[in-house]
Write a protein that binds this DNA or RNA. Sequence first.
DNA 1: AGTGTTCTTGCAAAAAATCGAAATACTCTA
DNA 2: TAGAGTATTTCGATTTTTTGCAAGAACACT
Lengths: 249, 249
Amino acid sequence: MLKEERHQFILNEVRIHNKVLLTDIADLLKVSVDTVRRDIKELHNSDQLKKVHGGAVSLGFNTYSPVGKKVYSLEKKSQIAEKAITLIKEGQVILLSGGTTNLELARRLPSKMKLTCFTPSLPIAVQLLTKSNVDVIFIGGRLSKDSQITIGGSAINMLSEIKVDICFLGTNSIHPVEGLTEFDWEIVQMKKAMIHSSRKVVSPCISEKIGSLQRYKICGTEDVDVLITELEPWDIKLDAFKTMNLQLL
Amino acid sequence: MLKEERHQFILNEVRIHNKVLLTDIADLLKVSVDTVRRDIKELHNSDQLKKVHGGAVSLGFNTYSPVGKKVYSLEKKSQIAEKAITLIKEGQVILLSGGTTNLELARRLPSKMKLTCFTPSLPIAVQLLTKSNVDVIFIGGRLSKDSQITIGGSAINMLSEIKVDICFLGTNSIHPVEGLTEFDWEIVQMKKAMIHSSRKVVSPCISEKIGSLQRYKICGTEDVDVLITELEPWDIKLDAFKTMNLQLL
DNA sequence: AGTGTTCTTGCAAAAAATCGAAATACTCTA
DNA sequence: TAGAGTATTTCGATTTTTTGCAAGAACACT
């Protein structure tokens, strides 16, 4: 067993479960706890996970954000995910777009909650497989290598045939006037279709994305029913949305 | 043994297993460990693999493997996968069912080969994401938790709209008289649809599955164009298939 | 406070890497 | 074809890395 293999295995476990126990890893890999501890220390030093007493936890997966913001950002996304889950009721049919916030949401779905979940996102589908009470329906189509979601006519076609209770629309840019925007044309088309397929549209969005603008428009703010940020609903940064017909959470 | 030969051998091993041990290579190639070490150092310097203590790993190693379940008869399945790849030509459109043999096939696809690849299997889709020249099209539908492929009407519907060059149909049971059979009715429906969508049907199957029989029938042997096992085509265990209109590989 | 568990530290055995020198193979020229 | 020169491989001695173990300190939980 190469050290590199153990490292990858540990990182993979962390990705899936968000946390690992030293003893579990040692057991699974059939090596001593000391070795695992040393491995985790190295991964910690190279900022690939966070070492804590008894194991390690994930840093979050947004690789682009500046160093030191990683944990912070995950913290925000977790808060958003937790708020989002309160909107979901047993037995509902939901639609999850791609993005790390929604991945976090998928990870935190209570395993005893019965749901039907549509998604075009490969990582989210993999995550949802671990939830035994969730029926997962994958929106097929051409896979985009970098966003890891399906795009294109076939996927949009499949979306056109459904009507779900809630759609959680991972949001990269929201602007009080311009609404939701996106830089990738194909993804815009997907998100438009997703909005059209949903009775209720929820936009989980970390506050630093508020006010930003991209090339293509997805929809106006009037098409969004709920905006979830990590902030309190009365925060001053959300003022621009207060007069709108839109629930803040 | 030329240096170049060793280099190619090592790279191939890395491509297949994602990692190699110095001692293994030295053993297989009947050269000293020092030589292998030097070879790997050269390959490392030319960025063809990553040298680590005790061996080397593939450069794209950090892309996570979906479900780290242990694969039985990996050696045989690798042989089958290698034979299967010889059937694929640049630019073709192929269809991969689920199963570990096909996962092996996906892993070993040369990364420079341009292909379009349909699949209803989540692990295979994840694996194919690492192949930059392969267009991946995921067959959407309801995800079966244990087989990790999509099933049901929607998936079958999507299959009904395509016609691919070759289908690699992971096979759990093949019988000279009864043909291909399967344990799960939903998967039977998927496989039937896959056969219908393909000009050529290839059945990769490890020899121990030959002669076995399950509850539901997928198709007769006449629907299979090529049968690939880890055995030599003239092996006595394959006698029953020799008189049939079916290529053995 | 008490009781397990987890961390740190130091150490020793085993495996692997490094380095230099010797042996072998290969190429090119006279 | 002999022989010099170069490249490649092997071998041995030494150093480094890795790993598991143990004793005591630090920690979490009741």
